[in-house]
Write a protein that binds this DNA or RNA. Structure first.
Lengths: 220, 220
DNA sequence: TAAAAAATATGAGATATCTCACATTATTGT
DNA sequence: ACAATAATGTGAGATATCTCATATTTTTTA
């Protein structure tokens, strides 16, 4: 991670204005930070003392279970807050966040914590963010229980396919969808058998869009 | 549902003070409402125009999937907010909430919406509530993926057992744990086989507390 | 209090998903 | 460019979980 200054800082602050998040001047408390691909923004189990607002990039939120299993809980895509729960509750330790791409964040030091927690403008935005987060987690959670991988994968392929080609890393997706690598491959193979997908060098080509949509549409 | 007035209202407002949630006088906007056991507080799919703060009682949060499956998402136990997300986002339709016991709630009409959304005191409390909700859903969600029913049920029995006796409705619990009724019964039978539980008229008696704890402790 | 509805119970067979073992390609760091 | 590491791919066998059918008991309601 390194801190951007001068032109770079100004560049981002102009491109992604953040003044209207606060009713006081946030500039003295704000840094523009860049994380390289693969860097950890929060180490799992640490006690962060910074709130981040990611403006560019993509990251993954992880947690490790007692039994050693690691869950990729979700993909985080800009714009979003990170470490905001730790701002509200004292000494809350965090889950792990690792960048997937180069990532630019605004960091806000806890030295203005009091101001933040008294600022209705900021709090309101935080409420909306947290509410959406809760809603999103709830729906993802309930879906996973209610549908087999066949349906969830179909929905995911629709979402993530680019120009009719699905091309994601199996190792990541199986974690994200909460199934074993083996099983993911089984279901992909099954889709190929059924002529829904076709495996090519470039990735999996969608050849039966309708059938895929039909499988996916079960999932809301 | 009926609205409590006079002594009843005063009684609850004294027992569960709520003034310190707001920096303005909430009294003109507040009603004390009572829901009977089994009543629906929110009908699934409706657009609620009231924020509730449940002060006594217990309810269930449901959602129905496209495939007709119904998920019991969570048990709601006082104190907590309901309909708060709908306050923040316009026209958000809600999941279904049904009471399990007689329930007392403070209701706040949207006529003071502007005041609420400008009140840092209230917003801060809402943030904490939403943050906890998100965290809770996330951990429940990830656990369900990472552990078989054996472990999750053990944990749940520990939580819900009263005086060493587990006595819940199977029909509800299987929904809550996201498994079929049949499978829940299998695993309960298995616990009996293994002499962890013993089935009696009064419920399932825990006879091997250690083994149960061992199974449960896998789950964080 | 009889009939209807809900909850409990159990068997049998299917399916979704997992673990492990191992072989074969990419990708990446030095 | 080579070794190390990560990602891909596949088989075989186990286990977790589901669906459906059906019977019994308990609770609710007219």
């Amino acid at each position: 991670m390194h801190i951007l200054t001068a032109e770079a800082r100004t560049h981002y602050l102009e491109k992604y204005p953040i003044d209207d998040f606060f009713s006081f001047d946030i500039n003295p408390y704000l840094e523009v930070r860049q994380f390289d691909k693969g860097e950890w923004i929060f180490q799992e189990g640490s006690f962060p003392d910074t709130v981040y607002y990611m403006i560019e990039g993509k990251a993954k939120l992880y947690m490790t279970h007692k039994n050693g299993k690691v869950s990729l809980i979700e993909y985080l895509e800009a714009p979003l807050f990170m470490g905001e729960i730790e701002l509200l509750n004292e000494a809350r330790y965090t889950k792990g966040i690792q960048t997937v791409t180069k990532t630019i964040c605004y960091s806000i030091t806890q030295s203005c914590k009091e101001k933040l927690l008294a600022d209705a403008l900021f709090l309101r935005r935080l409420c909306v963010f947290l509410g959406e987060k809760a809603t999103k987690m709830t729906s993802k959670y309930t879906q996973n229980q209610a549908y087999p991988l066949e349906n969830r994968l179909a929905a995911f392929i629709q979402l993530s396919a680019d120009q009719g080609v699905y091309k994601e890393k199996h190792t990541e997706i199986c974690e994200y969808l909460g199934v074993s690598y083996r099983h993911l491959l089984y279901v992909l193979a099954q889709f190929c058998d059924e002529r829904i997908l076709e495996k090519r060098k470039t990735g999996y080509q969608i050849i039966d869009k309708n059938r895929l949509a039909q499988l996916a549409q079960e999932v809301l």
